[in-house]
Amino acid sequence: MATVQNPSTTPLRQGVQPLRAGQGTSFLWRKLHSLLGIIPIGAFFIEHLLSNFEALKGPAAYGAQVKFLNALPLVRVLEWTFIFLPILYHGLYGMYIWIRGKSNVVYYPWAGNWMYAAQRWTGLIAILYIGQHVWRQRFAGVSLPENPGAAFAKVQHELASPIMLAVYVIAMIAICWHFSYGIWLFAAKWGITPGTIARRRFGYACGALGFVLLIMGLASIWAFISPKYRNAPENVTPVVAYLHSTAPPYAAIAG
């Protein structure tokens, strides 16, 4: 009788398949997703918050900041390469990651597992928010690149609606969370903080950063709804401003 040639165990017909050692490209796409979250998206996020912070100085300063940004060389190219496309990729691939994971925080309600789930939900909030934000603030309505002076009023109108205000506040919280935990995850998953103690310390640092960013973000929102700049002018730098008016824009209108 011949020795049986069949495999010794019934082959796995279902269930998780073994590692495809060294094969496929998912490593690259996943690492790209991870990296983009920090640079440029994270960097841009910080820049955006800093810019928004100018709103606390009033519509003119805010308008000037918007103008400055829009005056950068190759600004449209920069905008697409370093902001829109990375965010689009990070968001869509993030959703892809989400649907492939099976969250089980119900059974294992451990801190890291909650964070895992939170990172996905905050990511979802972020991408939905960013979608409407970019559409309504960048592409719809008054074109800010051409009318940077209209920036303050445009945002102020938006935040006049309590619903939109709530959306902005929630999104600000979610994005600050997503970003600061994202930095922490990046450090852990890229081997920058392998040890438990290092991770815990860096966790405090990320938490502090997230908190500062959140305060800055909420303060900027406050600038738009505070009584101080109520009913800001529709455009602090009217077309005449293009004619190299020497007077301060705000003064010009006031005058």
Partner: peptide, 12 residues
């Protein structure tokens, strides 16, 4: 490779 270390979500 596919299914490799990059799939970790660090839920810990």
């Amino acid at each position: 490779g596919d299914g490799g270390i990059q799939e970790c979500g660090f839920a810990q």
